[in-house]
């Protein structure tokens, strides 16, 4: 049975949707649950997780957009299909941006409802299988990257590593973001202070000069041929990132303590401070051009009774 939660403040429209499913050729496939607004829908989801949610857009208390956002946050694997009235196409686009799986104009419910629900449900099964594979069966994820002087690649790399962490459910969302902060800081250090050899003291003096010099050095030898090497190892024990630049290195002790009130108005050292605070361990090699960031896994997740961690987005 496929449980469909139908959310609409109009009792007539709720019954209309339920009726279409009940009269379809696949009527034995559907178990139908109703909710009269977004808040009611969330309560229903909490007591019994549906396979698919189909919701109206405009409802009191919590509308369809808010419901999509809440479901994507708390139950990311439940597909949500929107019913849209004429003229609400813009809202539908916004809902798709927020993570809705599809939408059906209300005037086409009779024709498209069953096929759309079947399509998004099938796709969600594939997503769940993939998630189960990633969360429970992937034991290690190793990747290596070589970055040139193109700074724009760094956010893509940080995003990729954060998604890999999320995929394996290594850390909760806050820890994942903390790892993101530390990675960004380490990569920026490798890029500006390592390969381009630009001192943060220059940024204290004049940040325009700092960035002008960075741009210039990206075109000059030897800086422009330098690379940043990144190795990432994700496992059930945690995450280890090794970042190596090709600059001369630096003396860690030469940096001011950024938490000293006397240094609060100096930009130097804050990135390192964030790295040290947000990671379990940070190690530099003697030269100062290789940093290893370690985040150890602290198991905190609950299980759903079958020995596996929840993987339905709960």
């Amino acid at each position: 049975m496929t449980t469909v939660l139908i959310v609409d403040d109009s009792a007539v429209d709720r019954r209309l949707v339920g009726g279409i499913l009940s009269r379809s050729q696949q009527r034995d496939q559907w178990e139908i649950v109703y909710a009269h607004n977004g808040c009611d829908a969330l309560e229903k989801v909490e007591s019994h997780i549906p396979d698919v949610v189909i919701t109206d857009m405009q409802m009191p208390e919590m509308d369809g957009l808010q419901l999509v956002a809440n479901l994507k946050k708390e139950y990311p694997l439940i597909p949500v299909v929107l019913m849209t009235a004429q003229g609400s196409e813009d809202l539908a686009v916004e809902a798709l941006h927020r993570g809705a799986a599809s939408y059906i104009p209300k005037r086409r419910l009779k024709r498209d409802l069953v096929s759309t629900l079947e399509m998004v449900y099938t796709a969600s099964l594939e997503d769940r299988s993939f998630t189960r594979l990633m969360i429970h069966r992937m034991t290690e994820h190793r990747s290596s990257f070589v970055l040139d002087t193109d700074l724009s690649l760094i956010p893509a790399l940080v995003n990729y590593l954060q998604q890999a962490i999320r995929g394996m459910k290594l850390f909760d969302e806050s820890e994942r973001l903390r790892v993101g902060v530390a990675l960004e800081e380490a990569l920026l250090n490798a890029f500006y202070h390592g390969n381009l050899e630009i001192s943060s003291k220059l940024r204290e003096t004049d940040y325009r000069l700092y960035y002008d010099l960075a741009r210039a050095r990206c075109e000059q030898e030897p800086y422009r041929n330098r690379h940043v090497y990144v190795d990432a190892e994700l496992s059930r024990e945690g995450a280890v990132f090794t970042i190596r630049d090709e600059g001369p290195g630096f003396d860690l002790d030469s940096l001011p303590d950024p938490t000293d009130p006397a240094n609060l108005d100096r930009p130097s050292g804050r990135g390192l401070l964030l790295m040290y605070t947000f990671m379990s361990e940070v190690r530099y090699n003697e030269t100062g051009n290789v940093v290893t960031l370690i985040k150890r896994h602290k198991p905190t997740r609950s299980t759903n009774g079958d020995g596996e961690d929840d993987d339905d987005g709960t």
Partner: peptide
């Protein structure tokens, strides 16, 4: 912003100055 690092800290410091 979901999160930020030293860049935004520095921008805020400049505004504050």
């Amino acid at each position: 912003l979901d999160y930020f690092g030293s860049l935004i800290l520095e921008a805020m410091r400049k505004i504050w100055t």
